[in-house]
Simulated scan of single mutants.
Amino acid sequence: MSTPHVVVVMGVAGTGKTTIGPLLASRLGVPYAEGDDFHPEANIAKMTAGTPLTDEDRWPWLEAIGAWAHGRAGLGGVVSSSALKRAYRDRIRSAAPDVVFVHLTGDRALIEDRMAHRQGHFMPTALLDSQFATLQPLQADETGVAVDVTGSPDEITDRAVSALHGLTE
C-alpha cells in the first residue's frame, strides 16, 4: 500500500490478532494499538467469566477503536479488533471511513488448539463457539482481505502484506 492506511486486524479469538498486528505494523512502518486495551473493565470481567459480550457492551469499545483509527487517518496504523459482525465494522468505519480490514481466518481446530496453549489471556476457549456463530466474513463492498492463519507468524504476516499491496495495485 503506497499511502498509509489504518488497518484493522480482525477475526475470532485465537486467530493471532495480537501476534500478527504488531508484526504487520512493523512491516508497514506504522504504530500498533492492541484492541483489547480499548475494552472497558466491565467487558474484560464478562469475558473472563466466560460470558459473551452483547452488542451494547461492544459499542463503546468499537467507538474507541474508531476514534483511534480516525486520529491516525493519513498517518497509518494497525489496530486489532475481533470486528466479527458487519455492524461492528460499520461502527468503526463511521469514525474512520478509510480503514482497511485484514480478516485472519483459519480452521476451528487449529484456532482452538492455539487458544488452549496461550497464556495470560482473559478469553476462554469456551467462548470460541459464540465467536464463530457471530462471525460475518468481509463482504464484497468492504475494503479488506482474508488471510489464512496456517503457518508461522512471519508467513502469515507476509501473506497479509502481499494481500494489502494487492488492494492498491
Results as ranks from 00 to 15, higher is better:
residue 48 T to H: 11
residue 25 A to F: 13
residue 114 R to H: 05
residue 32 Y to T: 07
residue 168 T to P: 00
residue 53 L to W: 04
residue 63 E to P: 00
residue 89 R to A: 02
residue 55 D to Q: 03
residue 168 T to I: 14
residue 99 V to M: 08
residue 133 A to N: 15
residue 42 A to I: 10
residue 114 R to K: 04
residue 57 D to C: 00
residue 20 I to M: 14
residue 21 G to R: 03
residue 63 E to N: 02
residue 154 D to T: 10
residue 54 T to Q: 01
residue 109 A to V: 09
residue 101 F to K: 04
residue 119 Q to L: 13
residue 46 K to I: 11
residue 32 Y to R: 03
residue 11 G to T: 05
residue 68 W to E: 09
residue 9 V to E: 08
residue 19 T to C: 13
residue 79 V to S: 09
residue 27 R to F: 15
residue 162 S to H: 12
residue 40 P to T: 07
residue 14 G to D: 06
residue 138 L to Q: 10
residue 158 D to K: 01
residue 1 M to K: 04
residue 75 L to A: 15
residue 56 E to K: 04
residue 97 P to N: 05
residue 121 H to D: 01
residue 165 H to K: 13
residue 147 V to W: 04
residue 71 G to C: 10
residue 86 R to T: 09
residue 126 A to S: 15
residue 45 A to E: 15
residue 92 I to H: 00
residue 89 R to N: 02
residue 73 A to I: 03
residue 68 W to T: 05
residue 141 D to W: 10
residue 109 A to Y: 07
residue 65 I to F: 03
residue 164 L to R: 10
residue 39 H to G: 06
residue 113 D to N: 12
residue 71 G to D: 13
residue 53 L to D: 01
residue 68 W to V: 06
residue 118 R to P: 02
residue 94 S to L: 02
residue 106 G to W: 10
residue 90 D to M: 03
residue 41 E to L: 15
residue 89 R to E: 01
residue 76 G to L: 14
residue 136 Q to V: 03
residue 125 T to V: 15
residue 108 R to P: 01
residue 82 S to W: 04
residue 67 A to T: 14
residue 101 F to Y: 12
residue 75 L to T: 10
